[in-house]
Design a protein around this nucleic acid. Structure first.
Lengths: 120, 120
DNA sequence: AACTAATGTCGTAAACTTACGACATTAATT
DNA sequence: AATTAATGTCGTAAGTTTACGACATTAGTT
């Protein structure tokens, strides 16, 4: 009997990054910033996106919390940039996750029966 | 003035896949299934994972709904496999998303002021 | 000093997610 | 026919997310 695991750290990290990416507004922002090399203002984004200003602020906060973007304050402006270091880390985690090629493995089955399904 | 967009379809697709991946249990399942080539039973998974049976069932349902896995029913067993076609699609979407290299672009700023921040 | 622009934060409603136990279903086994 | 194993579905509680308007903050402009 295989015993219950805690979730492995990298599994949790992948889930957390995925969560940060799990809203169209945040995908859009990351796309834009990762392509930009320079930075951009939240005002640039509100005008493009179909969401309100305070909602955008929340999304930016989440991306910042997840470490995927950074804000450089120059009141009343704030320039947002991708956090290259963590963005690279995200890339690595995801490519490891997505590109693992299949290997042949057996599943275990637990029933003590004589008529187990075939094709395991 | 750039006008408000609807979120582009691929942006929404990426967000949806990310959402499906946004829980450690689901990352774990996808990791396992994508590496396995063969399939596995939900019973195999409950024993490993630190969550209850009905909760696992919900997670599997979500992954199925997102198109990332398939279940082959053979009552009372159900074999779960990765959905290779959609898994490949997810890979493509994510590598396009993550690997886009930065290009130089200008941001627009809206304020009609003479003292705009430098370093745009 | 008052006004304005660009933002963030708060409060809050509505919707969604996660987790779990209890019940339902299906076919093999006794 | 009753029992058992492997699962799914329902109900529901607790927690989280999303969205938005109203208010707060900061510095340039008048």
């Amino acid at each position: 009997m295989i015993s219950k695991i805690e979730f492995p750290v990298d599994t949790i990290e992948i889930a957390n990054i995925a969560k940060a990416i799990s809203h169209p507004a945040r995908v859009y922002i990351l796309k834009k910033l990762s392509k930009m090399n320079s930075c951009c203002y939240s005002g640039d984004l509100v005008e493009e996106l179909p969401i309100g200003r305070s909602t955008l602020s929340q999304h930016l906060k989440e991306l910042k919390y997840a470490g995927l973007i950074q804000g450089e304050i120059k009141p009343p402006y704030i320039k947002y940039c991708i956090n290259r270091k963590n963005w690279e880390k995200a890339k690595k985690l995801f490519s490891g996750f997505l590109d693992d090629s299949p290997v042949i493995m057996e599943t275990t089955i637990k029933r003590k029966s004589k008529t187990e399904p075939v094709n395991l």
